[in-house]
Amino acid sequence: MNLFRLGGDLAHLVSIFILLQKITANKSAAGISIKTQILYSIVYVTRYIDVFTKWISLYTFVMKLIFIASSFYTVWLMHNTYKSTQNPQIDTFKIRYLIGGSIIMAAIFNHKLTFNELVWSFSIWLESVAILPQLFMLQRTGEAENITVHYIFALGIYRALYIPNWVYRWIFDQYFDYIATVAGIIQTLIYSDFFYVYYQRVMKGKKFELP
């Protein structure tokens, strides 16, 4: 473990709880893409499929359970408690293409043709594109009551810190995983596009709204 990865994981955890706090405080899920949240739940389940069979450390075990539980809770809240605040008309990104594309990428790029490795690779590729439904929704509406700049910032820190983590591990641990690294860099680029859209549509947009 290194500080980059610990910081990244904690920022990731904070981003999930910022979103949950916002939804429950506002009693609304307006402006949040349930498709992206569903994709994240799929990412965690497939990524942590061996959470009970392969022991890495207590930290890893606890964090995996928290990520799975909090993402399912978010989807559950959006689909049940705050369903009335959802507007499915604007959450229209076809996630079947993201899931299909991730399956293809996993079939091509994997470390071993075993079930666990294929599922792990699928999860890595899916995570890199999971934010796209949210990005397209934000681009269309420009409204983001619940997608706050803190959420996006925490998400960005998570992704950004993983890159120095990989550099650190490559130098000091002689550890390098090209799948995680390539998909992680793609994800970081998509997240930076997300910030740009947020800045253009929400931050600047807000200024024009004020009388």
């Binding site: 990524r47 890495i56 450390s57 890893t60 995996k64 990520f67 071993k112 550890y175 995680a180």
Partner: peptide
């Protein structure tokens, strides 16, 4: 043979 990287990251 390329050693399988242990997936110890979240």
């Amino acid at each position: 043979a390329q050693t399988l990287p242990v997936h110890d990251e979240l």
